[in-house]
Every structure is written in C-alpha cells, then in structure tokens.
C-alpha cells in the first residue's frame, strides 16, 4: 500500500503537518489502514530526502508544515496515470496453505477450507455492516464527515467486500474441485482393481472417456 503517494495526494491540496495528514488519510480510508504519526513522519522524511516534498514553515503551535515540490507533483501524476501492477501476484498465504495442504498427508483439506470460509464470511459480514452504516449516512466516530470523504470510504469498503467475496468464491471452487478429484481417484482405484483381474478386452469406461 502506498502511504507515500497517499501523502503526496493530500499535500497536493496544500501544505499540511504530520498529524493532520494522518487524520485526513484515515478520513478517506476509514482507518482500514491506520497510520501512526511516527509512520507519517518517517514517510515525510523519505519524501523530503527524495526531493518530493519540502518543509513549509511552522505555525505558532510549532507544527512543522510540508509542501509538495514540482517533482513531487510529477510523481503523483505518474502514480494516477499508471495502473497498479498485477504482474507480480502478491504472495497469498491462503493459496500457499491450500497448495501445501493437498500434498501433506493427514491434513483434512475440507476442514481447512470450511474454517477459512467461516472466517472470511465473518469478515464479509463485518465489512457489510460498516457499509450499511455508511450507506445510511451515519457519522463515523472521530471523523469529520464530508461527501467526498464518505464516498472514498465507501469505495474502500466495496473493495474489501469484493476481494473477500472473491476469496470465498475461490474456496467454494476449491471444495468442488477437491470433491471431483476424490471421485476421480476412487473411480481410478476401482478400475485398477477391475483391470488387475481381467487382462482381456479394454474396459468400456476407458473408451467412453477417450
């Protein structure tokens, strides 16, 4: 997730200080990816090191303001203009877990699938509950509400929902595939047992499958 570009996008709307950036970031993403102020300052100093932001003075309360530079603005435009790369699939622990589970003897894959499905449905219920509130226009605690912030939050929630749904659909699919595989294995075993006894004519089943 690009906090770096997120902060640039906020600074593009005018100079801001660290705590303010954190609050505004979370107003848009609904604290889905909460930032602590330390993370904001670490990112700001890297952006400054790379010449993308520069200090823009302090207010009377001692808040250090930052402003986006011309190259920071160019970097931001380039970010919006470039698709988020999908060429390197993110490492997915669940996919790795299932890929291992089907090869390790003694693991009940169906139980692994159902356990994950329950967990993911629960997450989906939770996101949907939040979305129901957002759609009903209920204010979020600690967030200054505005139409564009609420829209941003809804989009983030929708993304979480669709992504979780995709995972559940994949789990359903895995289950069907596992069942088909088990059936095919059984049929193969039965056929092997039959063929072992009769070495004569090829069995009709095999011809059907060809």
């Amino acid at each position: 997730m690009s906090i770096r570009h997120g902060l640039l996008a906020l600074l593009d709307q005018g100079p801001r200080y660290g705590y303010q950036l954190r609050t505004e970031f979370e107003a848009r993403t609904g604290a889905t990816w909460p930032l602590n102020v330390g993370q904001v300052y670490t990112t700001l100093s890297r952006l400054e090191r790379d010449g993308l932001v520069e200090p823009a003075g302090e207010d009377e309360e001692g808040h250090q303001f930052y402003a986006v530079t011309a190259s920071g603005r160019a970097e931001l435009r380039a970010w919006f203009d470039t698709p988020v790369p999908r060429t390197n699939p993110p490492r997915d622990e669940l996919a790795i877990k299932l890929a291992m589970a089907v090869t390790v003897p003694g693991v009940d894959v169906t139980t692994v699938v159902q356990g994950q499905r329950r967990h993911s449905i629960k997450a989906l219920q939770d996101y949907t509950r939040l979305k129901g509130r957002a759609l009903a226009g209920e204010p979020r605690p600690g967030v200054a509400s505005s139409a564009s912030h609420d829209l941003a939050w809804l989009l983030v929630l929708d993304q979480l929902i669709f992504q979780t749904e995709a995972e559940i659909r994949w789990l359903d699919h895995c289950e069907t595939r596992l069942a088909q595989h088990a059936e095919a294995e059984q049929a193969r075993a039965a056929e092997a047992a039959r063929d072992g006894g009769a070495t004569g004519a090829p069995p009709a089943r095999r011809r059907l499958r060809a």
């Binding site: 906090i3 604290a31 990816w33 909460p34 629960k122 509950r129 979020r140 605690p141």
Partner: peptide, 21 residues
C-alpha cells in the same frame, strides 16, 4: 458465522497497524 456490532468494528480497525512502505 455470527457478525459483531459495527461500533466495535471501528475500534478493532483503529487498533490494527500497517507497515510504512
């Protein structure tokens, strides 16, 4: 699967953390 109340979800979300890229 039983869902939890939305108010407590926001609290859960706020106590999570992320890594800085």
């Amino acid at each position: 699967s039983v869902s939890q109340d939305a108010a407590s979800l926001l609290v859960t979300a706020a106590t999570n953390s992320v890594k800085v890229d």
